[in-house]
């Protein structure tokens, strides 16, 4: 356990944290506009993994691609993952949640529907894509390309960090600087009044799901690059990212990013100190501790109706 190794783990923590952050945004955005804990978001993420995998395996890759080619492949895989993730999220909202909103169903019904949709989606994925783990095309030789003060980053990890940061910056811009973002924030704060201003709530909710789905799907592909793609892959990252959203302050976009980074870092450092068996223990301990002292999360519920 040298200092060098610690540094290595911290860099890995940033990579993982970036992924959690991007997934957590999907939970937090949907919570913001609907006060709904969309547990099926982990399956949106999983479908994103398959979207990227299917496109990249179908599109014959060059064996042993150069760094530049890898960038192209990752970009294409991310787009495919985002597209499938966005499509699944869009369909999920239309099929599962919109009818409930029409009938003013109680919150609990939404929650149960979310869990049901999650089961349905990952089982259908198992049926469609098989139940064994699959790797992304082997072209991704994990060559070290950058060393940061001795910690080595390979192409994949570098691209993960770069893409995740780009997505977060873009998302922050959309939420705070665009008209769609104004609509999202208005619906989150007071849907009835938002509609008096001419905001079409159904449209905003649908687009919010799609945005979350695009990010979650892209993250699913990036996650698959780093490990494997399998129909159950959504569960743990999903629940961790959900915890990250709560940790940062559910409904708070920047909070979700912060929470994701914190949990990614805590998780890898836990593995470093206590070993892999403890991987998910410390992160959730941190969550519980933070919520005991700050029930609205680190940054508070910003997008949401309260606080």
């Amino acid at each position: 356990m040298s200092l060098n190794e610690l540094w290595d783990y911290m860099v890995l923590g940033v990579v993982l944290g970036c992924l959690y952050a991007v997934i957590a945004i999907g939970y937090t955005l949907v919570y913001g506009v609907l006060q709904l804990l969309n547990f099926a978001h982990s399956e949106v993420f999983m479908f994103g993994g398959f979207g990227g995998l299917l496109v990249l395996t179908a599109w014959v890759p060059v064996a042993d691609p150069s760094g530049f080619q890898s960038v192209i492949y990752v970009a294409v895989g991310m787009l495919a993952g985002a597209a499938l993730g966005g499509a699944v999220a869009f369909g999920l909202e239309k099929v599962a949640y919109r009818p409930l909103r029409r009938h003013n169903a109680p919150r609990l019904v939404f929650l149960i529907t979310a869990i049901g949709a999650s089961f349905f989606l990952y089982n259908i994925a198992g049926k469609l894509f098989g139940r064994s783990s699959m790797s992304m095309p082997t072209m991704y030789e994990n060559k070290t390309v950058v060393t940061i003060f001795g910690a080595s980053l390979n192409v994949t990890q570098l691209l993960i960090v770069f893409s995740a940061v780009a997505m977060m910056v873009g998302l922050d811009y959309v939420v705070n600087r665009t008209k769609l973002g104004s609509g999202i924030r208005a619906v989150a704060q007071d849907p009835e009044v938002a509609s008096l201003m001419g905001v079409n709530i159904d449209k905003v909710v649908s687009r919010t799901f799609v945005i979350g789905g695009l990010l979650g799907g892209a993250a699913g592909f990036l996650f698959g690059l780093n490990s494997k793609v399998v129909y159950t892959m959504g569960f743990l990252p999903g629940i961790t990212a959900f915890a990250a959203a709560v940790l940062g302050g559910i409904g708070n976009v920047r909070g979700a990013m912060l929470g994701g980074m914190v949990l990614g870092m805590v998780e890898t450092l836990t593995v470093f100190v206590w070993g892999d068996d403890w991987r998910y223990v410390a992160g959730f301990a941190v969550l519980v501790l933070v919520l005991m002292f700050r029930p609205t999360g680190l940054l508070g519920e910003r997008l949401g109706r309260t606080a």
Partner: peptide
Amino acid sequence: RRVFPRMTVRENLEMGAYR
């Protein structure tokens, strides 16, 4: 009144012109 609590005065006014 129902102003948007987490938007600035300016943003609230801009919401009024959302259409």
